[in-house]
Write a protein that binds this DNA or RNA. Structure first.
Lengths: 329, 329
DNA sequence: TTCCTCAATCGAAGCGCTTCGACAAGCTTC
DNA sequence: GAAGCTTGTCGAAGCGCTTCGATTGAGGAA
């Protein structure tokens, strides 16, 4: 039952090293200078005893919990693998800063934010998948809890936001297709519902895609097989010269490929397709497609790093856009 | 900066309600009887002030953190969406018990377990994706930290384990195919590497599939398009009467369907396919396939519930197998 | 009435840590 | 060689909570 380190306190370490408890604390935190000999003795005692400071006691005394919260969206339509990559990326980065990560779900809403803020269980907060009109944003501002948002709400005044540069992603897709010699290109987007909900994201892709170069169409599309089939057919009918397609709708990718095959298009030869979405989606169709991925890990690392800086009282840019990367396969 | 509830302590609540701090504590915890009038006054004060107990102070005084840890595997080959469903299911269930969830990654290994145990940052632990020979298991046993494992290590003595009943899943697939009149059936499994690593899981499916009924083949298979294509071809060549296939290899499902189409098989008519894997995989091919899913949410809820019981000193079964559900589409 | 019981409440003692002020030595500096 | 700095260390206070007696007053038994 009582393993090593079980119930070991700073007093035990102090006794073993022959110093005062406060000295141990200073060795561990580095907040006052301690002679190398003493420090060594303390570190040795820490190692011998397998000592780890009691998190609650530390948080009570220092007013720093050493924990950040991450609030995940639970809503459908979020791509789960990306979320997971994000979460694990955030944990990994947080651990580098000696922080732990508390997982919350968006369905706790503003009340959840108030709870963690008041209970001081976390020092800061990362809010994922922020919508243009997000009810949590106002609460966040009121609480004054250090935070970083993934995504941009309508009013980002005074907030720290990080996101993929979706405009650049749209532009990259258009450029890729143009370079392949496609004269007429189209963007097959997500369902109308997505556009309606979070204009920020889908619209920025559209803007980037349309850009300033040549004829281009943008077509929202539901993700069920039948709708995709129909939408692609209509798109081809309406644009006879269409030779390039960007797909910003993960679940639809497979169906798009079928529809193109049915229409007699040879993808990779007389027709080009590029995906905005996670690698797996682009890899698991035949032929494999080039894609612009949502760099979940980078996004997570950036968010955590920014939050750490804020907690340390350093300043960070209000708005950070991560450059998209187009992978050719 | 200082919003409501910011810095509010139990003393503030006590003052407002005209009682002692200890009384507030007893009202909140229900550990001693308090007159209804007093309780009402206290609750009112709590509401007025937006009071939430300081988590660190509470954990220090009560030796209960109100947080459980969840250790996620980061290894490739784990299906990310399932992990995510699991994580969010666990958080949701934990919140029902007024607990928070700390996210850890498996790469912290045994040392991570020792850390969270010694720092008392969590009260208990859920370990996902436990392997047959898992180095964390021994540490866990030594630490005596209340825990629930997802999966079964070789030596589960004294541990609480929860998992999908994979044997039953294999059996269900075989039965489904038999019922469709398939005489000769096969199981297309994961790559050899998976079998090698975690015998428990893949082998149990195989056993269930082979069962006692009629001719059946089990064929491990890598998940790249080319290998899948070849494996399916060989399988068909070696078993000319094959009319039923179970696929226990998520990324391969799409390729399997192509290979069968190439071989002239009409899935759903003269040939039947069933998937062991998440819904999306089975839904996003044409035709949609029946599937046995890993019930991530149920698994997570069960794990959390078991852990809560252990924390309350109640006992729980050492081993819990969740019944698989075959969904027909 | 007196004594006892029991329910309701209070006060104080920690939980294990950080941090502040104090205090010895060992240095400079004039 | 006294006055002033540093440097390294200690002791004590206190963070906000829970919990363990102790205390009070009301009601019942004698």
């Amino acid at each position: 039952m009582a393993g090593p380190g079980r119930g070991t306190t700073i007093a035990d370490v102090a006794a073993r090293a022959g110093v005062a408890a406060s000295t141990v604390s200073y060795v561990l935190s580095g907040k006052r200078s301690i002679s190398p000999e003493t420090a060594d003795r303390v570190m040795q005692a820490v190692a011998d005893l397998g000592y780890h400071p009691h998190a609650g006691a530390r948080s009570l005394a220092s007013r720093r919990a050493g924990v950040i919260a991450m609030m995940l969206p639970l809503r459908d339509g979020m791509h789960l693998p990306v979320l997971m990559q994000f979460a694990s990326g955030a944990v990994t980065e947080a651990r580098r800063h000696d922080q732990d990560v508390l997982l919350m779900t968006a369905d706790e809403g503003p009340a959840g934010l108030a709870r963690v803020a008041a209970s001081a269980i976390v020092d800061g907060l990362i809010l994922m998948d922020v919508e243009v009109r997000d009810p949590r944003v106002e609460t966040l501002r009121r609480l004054g809890l250090p935070s970083v948002l993934i995504g941009f709400p309508a009013d980002a005044e005074g907030l720290t936001c990080v996101d993929l540069d979706f405009t650049a992603a749209g532009r990259a897709c258009a450029e890729y297709l143009r370079e392949r010699g496609c004269g007429d290109i189209a963007l097959l987007g997500a369902s109308e519902a997505v556009y309606a909900r979070r204009t920020g994201f889908a619209e920025r892709v559209r803007e980037g895609f349309l850009g300033r170069s040549g004829p281009a169409t943008v077509q929202p599309c539901p993700d069920d097989p039948v709708s995709v089939q129909r939408t692609v057919k209509e798109l081809l009918a309406a644009n006879p010269d269409l030779t390039g397609l960007a797909v910003h709708n993960e679940p639809a990718v497979g169906h798009v490929m079928h529809a193109l095959a049915d229409a007699g298009k040879l993808v990779g030869e007389d027709f080009h397709v590029v995906v905005i979405g996670p690698d797996e989606v682009a890899e698991r169709v035949h032929p494999q497609l080039p894609s612009v991925l949502v760099p979940a890990e980078t996004l997570a690392e950036t968010a955590v790093r920014h939050l750490m800086r804020k907690l340390d009282g350093l300043d960070v840019p209000d708005s950070t856009l991560i450059e998209p990367q187009l992978t050719i396969r």
